[in-house]
């Protein structure tokens, strides 16, 4: 598959995945509006929440990397463009990894 087609397809695949995942997340934190730390951790560390949160982080930061790539393509016209793109991708990867590790750490703390 060509790079452009892969970008187009994954942008949409992650968008579709993010519809239920983000709605689940928003509904969950609204439901926990009055919860303290204990209740919050109990919710976050039940197996289903952990799986959904890791999936949310993966789909979210992949979608962000793909979206920022288009912004960079449109507005960065210098020799630094490959560096900017690499920084965007590494930043997204790092943030997704830190988020996942935080979830797992909370569960086993």
């Amino acid at each position: 598959m060509k790079d452009g087609a892969r970008h187009w397809l994954w942008e949409r695949a992650t968008a579709l995945a993010l519809i239920p995942l983000t709605i689940w997340f928003l509904a969950s934190i609204i439901a926990h509006s009055s919860s303290g730390y204990g209740e919050f951790v109990a919710w976050l560390t039940n197996p289903l929440s952990m799986v959904l949160m890791v999936l949310l982080l993966a789909a979210l930061f992949y979608h962000i990397a793909l979206g920022f790539q288009v912004v960079v393509d449109d507005y960065v016209h210098s020799a630094r463009k490959p560096l900017v793109l690499m920084a965007v991708r590494l930043g997204c990867l790092a943030l997704a990894a830190v988020g996942c590790i935080a979830v797992v750490y909370t569960a086993f703390d």
């Binding site: 976050l44 962000i64 979206g67 750490y105 909370t106």
Partner: peptide, 19 residues
């Protein structure tokens, strides 16, 4: 989308705080 990506950074910050 750009605003939400800032929110995503906040989400990670919040998860790290919980940890």
């Amino acid at each position: 989308g750009i605003v939400l990506s800032l929110g995503a950074v906040g989400l990670v910050f919040w998860l790290v705080a919980a940890a």
